[in-house]
Every structure is written in C-alpha cells, then in structure tokens.
Design a protein around this nucleic acid. Structure first.
Lengths: 174, 174, 174, 174
DNA sequence: CATGAATGAGAGTTCATTCAT
DNA sequence: GATGAATGAACTCTCATTCAT
C-alpha cells in the first residue's frame, strides 16, 4: 500500500513482518508470490466486509449504492489501497487468461452487479434493457476512476459525479 | 513500449539509440526526463495523426467514431503503446495538479468529445441531456479499458462491445 | 596507506579484504565510515604500542624521546602510514569542533607532552617556563614535518634536526 | 580555493573561465597542469604583495612580524586559500626532489627568515645562536598551523599564541 | 524449521578526454 | 585556433537470492 509492488524490497517485507530473510524464502520463491498471497487475503477480506454490511431488508439499489460507496472509499484512500501495487504487479505478470486474478475479480463483480440490476428491474426500481452491458459499463468506469486516482489527484466530487451519472442511467430513462 | 517505465534501464535506452552512456546524460538528467520527452513527442504525433484523418465533410458521429477507433487501436496494441509505461511513470510522479500531463490530456479529450456531442445534438444526430457528463463517462470507460488491456487479455470484441454501449447511449434514448 | 583516502575505491577495499561488494555495505554505509573505523583501530594500536614500550624506570626525557622517535618512524614510512589518508579525509569531513577526531588526538598528545615536560622540570631534567606552550610548539612542528613528508621528500636527517632543535630548547636554556 | 584540487572538475574550470572544453586542452594536458600554473601565479602574487608592503625603514623584527601576519591571514581564510588544494595536489604529485615546488617555496622562505633573524641579531634586536634552525622551526610551525587549520577549526587566538611563542624565543633568552 | 551474513550482477551517474567541425 | 557534443571506463550503491549454521 505504501510503496506499490516494484518499489518494495524483500528487506521491507522482512522487517515489516519481523521474520528472517531466509524464512521468507521457505514459503515464497520470489516477491511476486508474496504479493499474490497478500492479494488473495485482501480480496477475501473485502468481500467479507461487503457482505456483512448488507442490511437484511436492503433493496437492490441500496446494495448497489453500498458497493459503489465501498469502491469509492478504496479508490480515494490512495495510500491505503493495494490498487497501485496490483496494477504494477499485473503489468508484468499476466499469466494465462483463465488464471488472471484481476480478470476473475472483474468478471465476478460484473456478475454481481448484473444480478443486482436485474433484481432492481424485476422489483421496478430500475429500468434497463441490457443489465450485463450496464454492469460492465459501471465496472469499466470504476477501473477508469481507479487508475485516474492513482496517477493524478482526483477530487471526491469527481468520483461522486461519475457514480451519480451511471446510477442515473439506471433510474430515470423516464 | 516493450518494457514499460520502471523496467527500462539507461543501458537499454543507450543501446536502442546507439548513443553513449554519457551522451544521454548531456540531454537528460534521469530516466524520468527521457520519458517525459518521449511522452510529449508521442502525444504530439497522436494528435497530428488524428486531425489529419478527419474527412472534410465528416459528421460529429463520424469524428467521434474515428476517435474511438483510434483509441481502440492503441489500446489493443499492447506491446506497441506507451500506456503501461505512462501509468507506471505517473504512479510515482504525480507533480502538482495543474502540471499533471495525464490530467491535461484527459481534460482536453473530454472537452473535444463534449464539443462533438454538442455538435451532434445540434445537428440532430445525438440525443443527450448532459454532453459533458457523457463525455466524461466515455473517457473513464476508455481509461478502464486501457488499464484492463494492460493487466489482462482483452479480446477485441470486448472493446467493441463497450464502445458500442457508450455510442448507443448517445443515439437512441428515443 | 597506499592510495590515501580519495583515491581508494570500494572495489579496492573489497578486493583487499576478500569480501563481496555487498558484504562491505552491510557494515559501512560509505567509504568514509570504513575509514573512520580504520582510523580508530590504528589510533588504538599506536597508543598501545607506545605505552608498552615505556621502560619501567624511564625518565621524562626518555619517554619524550621515545614519543618523538615513534612519531619520526611513522612520519618517515610514508607509504605505510595513514597520515595522507587522514588529512585527505578531514579536508572534507571536519564535523563539529568537539567531535573532530584529529583535534582530540592533537589535544591529547599536547596534554601528555605537557605532563612529561612538567615532570622533567620537577625532576630537574628540563628547564621550561611554559610547559604547555612548549608542548604545543612540539606538536605543531611534528604536524609540519608530517605534512612536509607527505608532500615532498624529507631526508631522515631533516627530521632528526627538527626533533633535536625542540628537545634542545627544553634542556639548555642554561 | 572552493573545492580543493581533487574535487574540481574540468567542467568547473571551463565554466569559471568562460572558455571551451577543447580550448583548455590546447594549453593544459590535464587538470594537474592547470593547477601548477595557478600555483605559480598565486605564489608570484603573494611575493609581490609581501615585498610591496615592507616599509622603507622597517626593522628586521617588523619585517618578520609582517611575514607572520601575512601567513596568519592566509591560514585563517580557509575557504579563500589554495592551501588545501596544494596539499591535495602534492599528495599525488611529488616529482623529483629538485622540481618540487613546495620544497622550493619552503626553502626560500627559510632562507629569507634566516636572513631576517641574522640581521636582527646583528642589529641587537634578536638573540639567536642558530638562525637557520630557528628559521626552520618557524616554518614547520607554520606548516603545522596550516594543515591544522584545514583539517579542524582553529581559533585565531591559537594562531596568535603560536606565533607569539616563536617570536618570544627570538627576543628574550635574557 | 529458521536464520541472517554474504553474494555479485547490475543499476544510475560522473567526468577526463577526444575530435569532427 | 577554438569549439562543445560525444565518449566509455569507472565509480558508488542496491537488492533478490543463497546457504552454512
């Protein structure tokens, strides 16, 4: 979170963890493997946090709003997210299509959002002719916002504006 | 384009350019300065290419389609674009808000697209209540596609689908 | 001793010690730190050698002569003394007054010589109205001889002549 | 004067002189030759200044005092003297005995001082049994003060004290 | 299992020197 | 004569990785 992926040295990790240099190599062959593990744990935790925060009687729009709010939070806490490190890592470690963790996460999120939108349409909250297309559009906007927040200053208002824009597309349509 | 920013060494540059180690330092104090210059030239060239390709009697939708096509081309030619390198560079060199080149380019592109949409609306091609919002949405989707294409395999069809989705939003609305 | 301070490279040290480049950096952050350590050890050793060589029943004049003889030996063995390196080091690393090792050594030596002269006066060996001034004078002459021996050929006779001159000043006065 | 000898680069010289890199090499083969020339000019100038400042009816003790005062001035203006640079240069360029400039200067100064002392003795100002020895002693003390002032802080009072000490030796003896 | 001292390839950078103009 | 862009050897320093203990 502090240094990203490339900037981190084995020394940093070893000191932060309070283990020995050799000890680290017993479990991880290289810095990449360490990062992959961190990423898995982080993702797990994020999922858990999200699910636990969903109220019992939440409407689809509430859950979607909650999801977007969580994304916004992570995206704005630049120094406290793995976003930069993750992108750095996958720049050089794309592996095969089916194993790419980033793709999996993206597709999973698209799937969840699609279900939410569909549920919203069914309940009369949303109007949407292409729930999957809308879900993908939302996710790409979020990725765009993420990379933007990591490479330049992004005011909170700008994030709100984009989120409002995509949500609006689901509601009105008049 | 091949190695991104962090992976590139002064040796790489020197060998690729056929100049001497010391010679490079006559003009650039560090790898970052080299990259900034490359970025400027690249941007200049991209702008020129775009402008020269606009036909005389082009409609706003044609120009927008041309713009998106050009973006698509760059975004899919992963190994031949500066995209990855640019993101890597700006991860660590964000400089002040007003000097951030990435932000400038983004804002400039938003401005151009907004004008195009407005022109399209005026000519009856498009229907859009918030041209600026739509322009921003398009740009964030493009950024999302860019970073996606750099961190995982993105099939051409996926890019087409997203571009079609945002264009569609401008036309129908019926 | 061979190359002085500035001329020595980390490579020289590493090869002379039979350790690795990185290994050296485990213990010293820069060439200066290596030198400081060498200097401390050298000084320690020189002090020990001097003290061990003082005979039981030595008169003050004997001890002073021994001290001067030791100084002469070091001063004439140009290639085998740290003198040049020390001066080079302190040309650029003067640090605060109280921490300057060179000043400490000088003052300590002045103190010892003053005590010797005083003892000699008490025992009737020497005649001296200003033991501290005389001690300082001796030390400055020694420094003058040192720098002279490092910057030009100094015959042994010249050193003997100067040492004789300052000793003579302590005896006769008649 | 600012950087000493080793720290100075050809770039520094070239920029300070407003000539071209190649131009410098037309007249000097290497940095050492530049320095030798500087040293000669400096010495010339110092000699001229000294001689011009001697009053018509000056007594030997006055002239000696003037000489010592001039030495003191140079020695205390650390950043504005060639002292450090000179020592650095001669650490590595001792050349043959007869060509060593430092030795020549030293011997010449000893000669002048000896003559002054002799004159002082003849005129009844000084008492001295070994004018040449005294002259040499004075010069070595001055060298000692010089190197001391370059490697550690030396208060003006310390310099005065040493100069007073050696002058005193010429007068009293009572 | 765990350690951490040691390794050495390779990074960025400097600078005396050259030579086509 | 004079220039200054270009050279490349050599420097300091870093860090993923190993291995005797």
């Amino acid at each position: 979170m502090e240094k990203g992926f490339k900037q981190v040295t084995m020394k940093d990790i070893v000191e932060a963890c309070g283990i020995s240099r050799g000890g680290l190599y017993l479990y991880f062959q290289n810095p990449g493997e360490v990062f992959e593990e961190v990423l898995k744990l982080e993702q797990q935790e994020a999922d858990d946090v999200f699910e636990q925060n969903i109220p019992e009687q939440a409407m689809p729009s509430d859950i979607l709003a909650l999801f977007l709010k969580e994304q916004k939070r992570e995206l704005l806490s630049r120094e406290h997210s793995l976003c930069k490190a993750t992108y750095e890592y996958f720049f050089d470690n794309q592996m095969s299509v089916r194993d790419n963790l980033l793709k999996k996460q993206f597709d999973a999120a698209v799937h969840v959002i699609e279900k939410l939108i569909q549920a919203g349409v069914d309940e009369g909250e949303f109007y949407c002719e292409d729930p999957r297309g809308a879900a993908r559009n939302i996710m790409y906007v979020l990725e765009g916002l993420k990379i933007a927040s990591q490479t330049r200053e992004i005011p909170e208002a700008a994030v709100d504006r984009e989120i409002f824009y995509v949500m609006q597309g689901l509601f009105l349509e008049e």
